[in-house]
Simulated scan of single mutants.
Amino acid sequence: MEDIDLLAGELAEVMRIAYIKGITTGGGGNASIRISDGFLITPSGKFKGRLEGKDILMINNRGEVIRGTGKPSSEWRLHLKIYSMREDINSVLHCHHPLATAFSISFRDSLKDIVRDFMTEEASIFLKELTVVPWRPFGTQELADIVSEALKDSNAVLIERHGALVVAEDHWKALAAMESLLETLWIFLFCKILRGIT
């Protein structure tokens, strides 16, 4: 049986680390952990850099809070749909990093080339593939459907104008996967700049 308090504290720590490292903003992004009775998810409207275990909510598959107080992330449908489609996934991390958002807008058609040519060995293990999905309104079932479909053969998605999302077997690997994704994008950007200089 899971130690809910421990997992809630670790999920809050994942978001604090993501904020401190500049991976997400204070008001943006969300994360979750699958548990036997539903899943733990970050709350809506709370500063990500100061989350604590007590802030993390447990919700069921209808989005109803069954532990904790407050509102769950508006993207709870997205997390639920991913868990329903991927039994191997136990954690979802979505961050609003400006580099990921910029790539989703500027390099959508050439993303497969970017991944093939610039993905590190670590990133290829964590991410498998990287896809871009078109923008859909946040918090909607439409967004949940399009992102979960893109994750059938991939562990990472860029959402047009809406950052990046990664999935993993646990929350620490999800954080590492997000770092690896951003590392790949930075490497590509730096190579483009350096090649332009030389």
Rank of each mutant, 00 (worst) to 15 (best):
L57I: 10
R16I: 04
V132A: 15
G68Y: 10
K46E: 08
I197Y: 12
A164V: 03
Y19W: 10
E160Y: 14
P134N: 13
G163E: 01
A177L: 06
L151I: 01
R62E: 15
D170C: 02
S36T: 01
L99H: 12
E64C: 11
I82K: 02
A12G: 09
K71L: 11
R108D: 15
V167Q: 07
T69C: 09
V132K: 10
Y83H: 01
A144D: 09
V157Q: 08
D55L: 12
A168P: 02
K46D: 10
A174Y: 11
L143S: 11
I23G: 07
E64D: 15
S73A: 13
M15S: 05
A100W: 09
I4Q: 00
G22K: 10
I17D: 13
K21G: 04
A18M: 05
G53S: 04
D5S: 00
R34V: 04
R34F: 04
S180M: 06
D145G: 09
L189D: 11
L181R: 00
L158H: 07
A100M: 10
A123R: 06
L93W: 11
L143I: 07
W172N: 15
V133S: 06
H79K: 09
L51G: 08
E2R: 01
V14M: 02
R195P: 01
T184Y: 04
H96Y: 10
M1S: 10
H162Q: 10
D37V: 03
R86D: 03
F190I: 11
S73N: 12
A18N: 04
T25F: 05
G196K: 06
V147A: 06
L7Q: 00
S36I: 01
G9A: 03
Q141Y: 13
F118A: 07
C95F: 02
S104D: 15
I105C: 15
R86H: 13
S124Q: 08
F39R: 04
V92T: 06
A31V: 03
G45F: 08
L143D: 07
R50C: 10
H94E: 06
E75Y: 06
E129I: 01
R136N: 08
I20Y: 09
D117A: 12
E87P: 11
R62V: 06
I187C: 00
L99A: 09
S154E: 03
A150D: 08
L7S: 00
C191G: 01
